[in-house]
Amino acid sequence: MNRILIIAPNWIGDAVMSQPLLAKLKAQYPHSQIDVLASTWVAPIYRACAQVNQVIEAQLEHKQLQWSMRKKLARELQAQNYSACFVLPNSLKSALIPWLANIPFRFGYRGEMRFGLINFALENPSKVNRPPMVEHYCALASLLELDQAPVTAAPNPILTISHDAKGAVQAKLTAANINNESLYVFCPGAEYGPSKRWPTGRFAKLAQAVIAQNSNAQIVLLGSKADYSLGEKIIQGANGHPQIHNWCGSTSLDEAIALIGLCQTLVSNDSGLMHIGAALHIPQVAIFGSSDPQHTPPLSDRAKIMWLNLPCSPCHKRECPLGHLKCLDDITPENVLHTISLLR
């Protein structure tokens, strides 16, 4: 396998979870060139993967066929003579490009009428029996293991920070008079919905408690543009404390990766940024509500999970179907602060 193409998943967390597959393929074929076709949304994750030779960015939209764009990409990729392609999303449209590009070996899971588009496939496990995502992706490498080597535990994801991104973030911190020696990053968002978001009032009280405990602490709120209002509510709840900074929506994902890599402690919901923190081996507290920490945990021995394991959870709903959000609301700032102290 001289050249391998990866069709990336569409979510940041899933992209992080795919890095061990890249590491496994590189170990199996050390002289291969691994390229990744990714949407602009997740492309920065693969720029932080040491195994990747080239990230091919494409304006691929969620739930859109974009037939003309896919045909154009396929023509360009066909000229690169890839030996194999691993299609990580389960959709039919994600399998179209490698098929149109005539890549001979196309690996993936069965799903959404992809017969023929994927010519080497594994059975897609049910949602009930699905293994953790790292194992789910790494299993695809077994399709290349002709000697059927014994199955070993999948390694944890590892990301690296680019020199340029680190320099850009350090310049931003300096301009904002933020000393990163006592830097905390709080990530109040979660793309899936409110049932995965610890309430902003809880984040505000935690921020005040952290600063009361460490007068030099600087807290940066990190997330997407959609999370900016959450950041403002946290600052308002903390009485506009000048040591809390709302950077939601004002950093690129490359910069967000670098910022998390520079922080002393990360506190987040179950989100893509949580997985980035784990892959950077940063001390972190991960707060879970409606989702299952057994399926999507932060894979790091420096991570502490806070989950109440109530009878109604994990419900996997975007909003609390019972209307009380106890799975998150009953996690107190005091408990999170105590958990932060255990990270030392």
Rank of each mutant, 00 (worst) to 15 (best):
L60S: 07
S300Q: 08
R110Y: 06
H62Q: 10
V285D: 12
N177K: 12
I234K: 01
G289E: 07
M133I: 11
H275S: 04
Y109A: 00
F105P: 00
V87T: 13
A149I: 01
N129S: 12
M113A: 11
N81T: 05
L322A: 01
R106M: 07
V52K: 12
L100C: 03
L230V: 02
L37D: 10
A50I: 10
I244Y: 07
G272R: 10
P194M: 06
G237W: 03
N246W: 02
Y228L: 12
W67V: 14
Q284H: 12
P9K: 02
S268F: 05
N335H: 10
A121L: 08
S162I: 08
P125V: 07
D147G: 09
I97S: 05
G231P: 00
N53C: 04
L206G: 05
S126P: 08
L343R: 09
I7Y: 07
S94V: 06
A23P: 10
Q28I: 13
M306W: 00
P194E: 04
V151N: 08
A149K: 13
S250R: 15
L310W: 04
S300Y: 08
A48F: 11
G167W: 00
E76H: 13
G13M: 03
V336P: 07
G201C: 01
D227C: 07
L146G: 09
V285R: 04
Q148W: 11
H163A: 14
V285Q: 03
V151Y: 13
D292I: 11
L22M: 03
D147F: 06
I161Q: 05
A286I: 09
K127I: 13
A23F: 00
M306A: 11
S291P: 08
E123W: 03
T200D: 04
P297N: 09
N119V: 01
L230T: 05
P150C: 08
H245T: 09
V220W: 03
N214H: 10
P188K: 09
L299I: 13
A153S: 09
A48I: 14
L343I: 10
L21A: 01
T160W: 00
N119L: 10
N239S: 13
R70L: 02
Q218C: 07
I178H: 03
D329S: 12
S68R: 15
N269L: 04
I97Y: 05
K317C: 04
Q66F: 03
P125R: 14
N10R: 12
N335E: 13
V169I: 14
V16Q: 06
E232Q: 15
M69W: 03
N10M: 06
I305G: 11
A238L: 00
Q208F: 03
A286P: 09
R197Q: 14
A165G: 07
L221P: 12
T296H: 02
L146A: 15
G167I: 12
C248K: 09
I103H: 10
G223R: 05
M69V: 12
D227L: 07
Y228W: 15
G240Y: 04
A212Q: 13
R75V: 01
L22K: 03
K225W: 04
G277L: 07
L100T: 09
N180H: 14
K127Q: 11
C85L: 00
I260V: 11
H136Q: 02
E61Q: 15
R302W: 08
L259C: 01
W99M: 08
A154P: 00
F288C: 08
P98K: 06
Q264K: 15
P125F: 15
L280P: 09
D35S: 13
I4H: 07
G223H: 02
Q64F: 11
G223T: 04
L328G: 12
L88A: 06
Q208S: 12
W41F: 15
